[in-house]
Design a protein around this nucleic acid. Structure first.
Length: 898
RNA sequence: GAGCGCGUAGCUCAGGGGGAGAGCGCUUGCUUGACGCGCAAGAGGUCGCAGGUUCAAAUCCUGCCGCGCUCACCA
């Protein structure tokens, strides 16, 4: 066995083993309770990033844990076609070859994208496998595979027939670069420095002559070309007299009315608002109230159209500059101010979004949102951590209709056909032959595709074969938990809730666990442009998948972002190595094969046969088992990791192994056998606890345990050929030994005390020192007697127990009920040691004062719970005893100095 | 503008009404028969600030300061 764990030597082997054995395959005939998770499907063209690593590690932990608990676990994997994102990437690649998508035409282009999908979809799947994801790959799905396409059409048709999908002319967010409509969510607002332009519109008097100006303020002067009114607040005394009059729209020369509308804020700008109904959401609504015409002045690429007159053909930003110039020349530009505004940008490409009037498809969401809100209110779906509930409610309660049509090629084509004869719409799952309304065969399918998130919303039941009523749906829906990050709470989680309830009549998941975002060590979001990405694949190459997984788990505290850095990962890589070496120690101390000695109810020692140390470690183990399970059930992943880390390193390695070394090198065969058994039991259980987080190293070490003849059982009671299918450790009340636990905890203090004294006298680690232990009472005396070997071995001391004699010249330590003396002959830095003791005494005095104050406070005595008061009394007693002893120690020191 | 989260050791973070914790880093010592990716012993903190509630506040409440995020059609 190597001295250092080398993950690269084993990881691939074990993953193949798990797959070959079919351990990740779920059963549709099992009697076991189901546990199911659907993966948040990564983008097909994407590459595994650190966020995926976290997301899938957490899911894997839950799945592997439940598997070991005997559940019929199903983790459904898959990928998302990610419409706009994927199309953009493929377009960019094609451009490198000098090909535009229009050159290929729709059909050929889509074929090219499928090719990409084949290559890159596979890549991300391999990367997930590299991470160790225990997905049931036989059930891998893609949001555009045949079955899923059927589900999408079915859902669309049903919603349409129920009147929840409609088509109409509305103002939508439009990306002029992607040339498609976007939903509200796909627009991100960014604070941008801009300018506020004050434009003077000449007022027309009754006779048509000019009569002064009304000044409007705007951040987008170019939109004035499409102005159809100026609006003021009806209560605005500055403008009251102008309502009903007209202004002459400069440059254009059109007459437009001055109207009154309540929604105009008198404080804002000049209080007079120019109305461009076809390019602004507020204006659109005002226009509807006043029956104003809507003049579109741009084409879908963001260039001025024929309605822009002489500006036709200009890009919208060029046009802005020209308009401003022209206003200035005419003397009707009053002023320009610096102005910060929240600009809407396309979340995919960052282009400034243009509100555009167009014919689009929408989902009418409030009727879907209502039951989805209720489900969370009633706790049928729990959101964890709870804080996100409010965010969910907030969004759901203010939900607006969802624009689902996209003018791109890659995606689910909307299953609607338009009739060239009667203009009617036929919506159908299969391809219709004739128009539903006039029976004309002269029909044509909608060219728009659906928003990617429309199909993602069906994921939790689409993957199980919906709309067919499959066995999988019956068993695994609702899924047990969804693990995701908060940035797609609205995009995805909320919509799955709506669709799941609508089509399945039940929530899509019992729990939603929302985890953090992974940031860099400075707390910044990782991005390729910033160059601060930590690539999980590099990390796995260098440190191993387990180290990465453990790092992410240990940092996955609820409600806080993860700041990941290499030193942290290195630390947990070291932990993996520690486990490796602890196991190595165990193996080195078991000669030959166990020959099944321990495999069949192999741990069968009666409590009186166990040593105090054995009892101590078993107590610790059992408590850790319980705490780990409690934490897992609450999704407290960081706590799980900490508990296991502390137990393996801090308890098992630092103390148990050290305590047991003399036994193993002794010649008491019975004691050796028993110790070996405890070592194996504790090691095996530790590996099991660790397995969900670090599957590879634990499998490797388990295989070595099998090599020496030790086997775990499956939940079904059979020999487990893999730790992945072994039965999770169970808390056993009869392996809790409170007395032994306290005894070893006490002995640890004694040992640390002596080591501390050794450091004071600068004793060389290999040299022995003489110490005199002076116990207060019989109980302490007995404890020390029982453990004098442990003390002597772990502190390299010759121990003398004395109830009366105390050395004259010595340095000392005090632990509860015990003084530890180390005689010295003036070879030490007495002043420094005195300083140390004095510091300690003054701290004791301070603590005593606090305690004293409490105990002399009548309110405390009367109102505090009895046990708290009692504990305070004990504490006071203990502190004052310790103080007395420390003072004594100080006296001894003085003598050393003389 | 509204809402949410976070300020605890030099750094990264647990904890969350009754004796301040971990890892890393730092100091000192170590060819300790598992491991130097290690062992041992240490130093290091008015728990952001100010009030309040309470017998008792790092912990609960209010305000403030700082950092971050989300939502919002505001010219």
């Amino acid at each position: 066995m190597d001295k250092t764990y080398e993950p690269r030597k084993v990881e691939e082997k074990w993953y193949r083993f798990w797959i070959d054995k079919g351990f990740f395959r779920a059963s549709t005939t099992s009697q076991q309770p189901p546990f199911s998770i659907v993966i948040p499907p990564p983008n097909v063209t994407g590459s595994l990033h650190i966020g995926h690593a976290l997301n899938n590690t957490l899911q894997d932990i839950l799945n592997r844990y439940k598997k070991m608990k005997g559940f019929n676990v199903l983790w459904v994997p898959g990928t998302d076609h990610a419409g706009i994102a994927t199309q953009t990437i493929v377009e960019r690649e094609l451009l490198k070859e000098g090909i535009k998508r229009e050159d290929l035409g729709r059909e050929k282009f889509v074929k090219r994208v499928w090719k990409w999908k084949e290559v890159y979809g596979k890549r991300i799947i391999e990367q997930l496998q590299r991470l160790g994801a225990s997905c049931d790959w036989s059930r891998e799905r893609f949001t555009m595979d045949e079955g899923f396409s059927l589900a999408v059409r079915e859902a669309f048709v049903r919603l349409y027939n129920d009147g929840l999908i409609y088509r109409g002319h509305y103002l939508v967010n439009w990306c002029p670069r992607c040339e498609t409509a976007l939903s509200d969510l796909e627009v991100t607002r960014e604070e941008t420095k801009g300018k506020l332009y004050y434009l003077k519109y000449p007022i027309l008097s009754e006779d048509g002559s000019s009569d002064g100006f009304v000044v409007v303020a705007t951040t987008r002067p170019e939109t004035m070309l499409g102005d159809t009114a100026v609006a003021v607040n009806p209560n605005d005394s500055r403008y009251k007299h102008l309502v009903g009059k007209e202004v002459l729209l400069p440059v254009v020369g059109r007459r437009i009315p001055i109207i009154a509308d309540d929604s105009v804020d008198m404080e804002m700008g000049t209080g007079a608002l120019k109305i461009t109904p076809a390019h602004d959401f507020t204006d659109f609504e005002i226009a509807n109230r006043h029956n104003l015409p809507k003049i579109q002045i741009m084409d879908f690429r963001g260039r001025m159209n024929e309605n822009a007159g002489k500006y036709k053909g200009l890009d919208r930003f060029e046009c802005r500059a020209r308009i401003v110039e022209d206003f200035e020349r005419e003397g009707i530009l009053q002023k320009i101010e610096e102005y910060n505004l929240q600009l809407g940008k396309c979340y995919r490409c960052g282009t400034v979004v243009e509100p555009m009037l167009s014919l689009q498809w929408f989902v009418h969401t409030p009727p879907l949102a209502h039951p989805a809100i209720q489900a969370v209110e009633e706790g049928r779906t729990r959101i964890i951590p709870e804080g996100w509930k409010n965010t969910y409610f907030e969004w759901m309660r203010n939900i607006r209709d969802w624009c689902i049509s996209r003018q791109i090629w890659w995606g689910h084509r909307i299953p609607a056909w338009f009739c060239r004869d009667c203009g009617g719409i036929t919506v159908s799952v299969g391809e219709p032959k004739v128009c539903r309304h006039c029976l004309s065969p002269n029909i044509e399918q909608e060219t728009d595709v659906l928003d990617t998130w429309f199909s993602s919303a069906l994921w939790p039941f689409g993957v199980f074969g919906w709309p067919e009523q499959t066995q999988e749906l019956r068993i695994f829906y609702p899924t047990s938990v969804l693990v995701t990050s908060f940035d797609i709470l609205f995009f995805w989680v909320a919509r799955m809730m709506m669709m799941g309830i609508r089509f399945m009549g039940d929530v899509p998941f019992r729990d939603v666990y929302i985890h953090a975002l992974v940031r860099d060590e400075k707390g910044e979001k990782m991005s390729k442009t910033k160059g601060n990405v930590i690539d999980p694949l590099d990390i796995m190459d260098e440190y191993g998948a387990d180290a990465l997984r453990f790092s992410l788990t240990a940092l996955a505290a609820q409600g806080r972002d993860i700041r990941l850095s290499l030193p942290i990962i290195e630390g947990y890589r070291n932990f993996m190595n520690k486990i490796w070496n602890a196991s190595r120690f165990v193996f080195l101390n078991i000669d030959g094969k166990l020959r099944g000695e321990y495999s069949d109810s192999w741990f069968s020692f009666k409590s009186e046969e166990l040593s105090v140390a054995d009892k101590w470690i078993l107590t610790r183990l059992n408590r850790v088992i319980r705490e780990v399970e409690e934490s897992l059930e609450k999704y407290e992943f960081d706590k799980v990791a900490r508990l296991i880390y502390q137990f393996i390193w801090g308890d098992f390695c630092d103390w148990y192994i050290e305590l047991v070394k003399p036994v193993l090198s002794g010649n008491n065969t019975g004691a050796i056998k028993r110790t070996q058994a405890v070592l194996i039991k504790v090691l095996a259980s530790s590996l099991q606890l660790l397995h969900p987080i670090a599957p590879f190293i634990t499998e490797e070490l388990y295989s070595r345990l099998r090599g020496i003849g030790f086997t775990l059982k499956t939940p079904g009671g059979e020999d487990a050929e893999s730790i992945a299918v072994s039965s999770y450790p169970v808390f056993k009340e009869n392996e809790i030994f409170e007395d032994a636990h306290q005894e070893i905890e006490f002995i640890k203090q004694v040992i640390v005390g002596i080591r501390n004294l050794r450091a004071v006298v600068r004793a060389h680690p290999s040299s022995k020192v003489d110490v005199i232990l002076v116990p207060d009472n019989e109980a302490v005396l007995e404890r020390i007697k029982r453990n004098s070997d442990h003390i002597a071995n772990l502190s390299r001391a010759s121990v003398i127990i004395s109830q009366h004699e105390k050395p004259k010249k010595a340095i000392a330590q005090v632990v509860e009920g015990l003084q530890i003396f180390l005689p010295v002959e003036g070879l030490i830095d007495v002043d420094r040691e005195m300083e140390r003791i004095k510091r300690e005494i003054s701290k004791l005095i301070k603590d005593l004062e606090v305690s004293q104050k409490k105990l002399s406070n009548r309110d405390f005595l009367e109102r505090a719970p009895e046990d708290v008061v009692e504990k305070e009394r004990e504490k006071f007693e203990e502190l004052s005893q310790k103080k007395r002893k420390m003072e004594e120690v100080l006296e001894k020191l003085k003598e050393v100095g003389t």
